[in-house]
Write a protein that binds this DNA or RNA. Sequence first.
DNA 1: TGGGTTAACCTAACACTGTTCGGTTAATCG
DNA 2: CGATTAACCGAACAGTGTTAGGTTAACCCA
Lengths: 199, 199
Amino acid sequence: MPRPSTPLLSPDRIRSTALAIIDRDGLDGLSMRKLAAELGVQAASLYGHVRTKDQLLNDIASSILSSVDVSGFSVDWREGLLRCARSYRAALSSHPNIVPFLAYGPAGRDESLQRLDLLHGALVEAGWSRREATMIAAGLMYIVFGSALSTFSSGFSADPADYSGRYPHLDRAHLLPGVARELDRDSFELALAAFVRGL
Amino acid sequence: MPRPSTPLLSPDRIRSTALAIIDRDGLDGLSMRKLAAELGVQAASLYGHVRTKDQLLNDIASSILSSVDVSGFSVDWREGLLRCARSYRAALSSHPNIVPFLAYGPAGRDESLQRLDLLHGALVEAGWSRREATMIAAGLMYIVFGSALSTFSSGFSADPADYSGRYPHLDRAHLLPGVARELDRDSFELALAAFVRGL
DNA sequence: TGGGTTAACCTAACACTGTTCGGTTAATCG
DNA sequence: CGATTAACCGAACAGTGTTAGGTTAACCCA
């Protein structure tokens, strides 16, 4: 195929299709050839619109995280922390399969740093020292990312039959997919509340 | 080379060499061929001792996490949580490059579940409901894994020069490698203390 | 001591992966 | 109308995890 009359590709279309594949098939389920096929194109064509796969993933991550809400600090720093953490987690858990990618760091994403800077400034404004502000922001991120990892409760719902008897205290009922999701959210809320209260 | 007089390979030797490569070259720096070369062997030979690369990584992760200390619950549940979290973090941060692998879940590692079961039982023993116990254990893991991800403070020490001016509140001094490590540990301690206190 | 079995390694290959190079054609601009 | 550029393609490269089939040494039993 030569140059088509209307372009088949655009950075946006590539990003959204890639994200759809990640959501459907997992992070490892995304390959440039599969992405290209889904767009009706050959793999090489993608590189006219995207510098590299890693860059593509970074862009996707950035766009997901752009919905994080840091407006709550105008009310109160506690409210700011809560609102920021909740919207952060909401963003991540709406696309859980991309979280492992974020785990690779170093998160040099500009928007992330900008948000972080804002958060940090608000905490200093509220009377915390610079060092304390950094640590509080870090602690908040620990809880957000930790809960998004789903290594925990949603992690082991694979085959509940395996667990019976071998782990006397763990309740098998906790592992049903529906319950696990709710439990994950409640665990996050508990950790968040305990953290903010304990400051 | 035919069958050697004394075997060149053993699961232990494979695991420890693989871990050394991961520590040195990162998670992506480990390939079966490179691992084999480092062991003086061809890649295919590894598969006589290891079922699959994924399994190998799981085994390595298990052995790293086997040093987690869950003995503190005989004293007091708070002490148990603190000791468990600290030893968990110590284990992870001694081999930070394997943490991204753990982010893939689902952590069906037997020892992890056994530890979790013990932790859960101790919390129930202390008077928490089963559901609360699960959530508290999850919250603890959030902080441990979140801090191990190092997406945060140690994450962006790449090029401090880039940050000057663009992020008015973030202190460049926080990004020096030595400071970042200490800051990471202190942030973890702060988050942990706040969490346990807030329960 | 000899023969069969098994264990430990090998070479070669398969189906992938991300990415690049050089070509081909259509749209677009002067 | 002609030159340039943008958008795609085919083919290839080096690398990945993994498997099949072959070769030889060590081991066990008669």
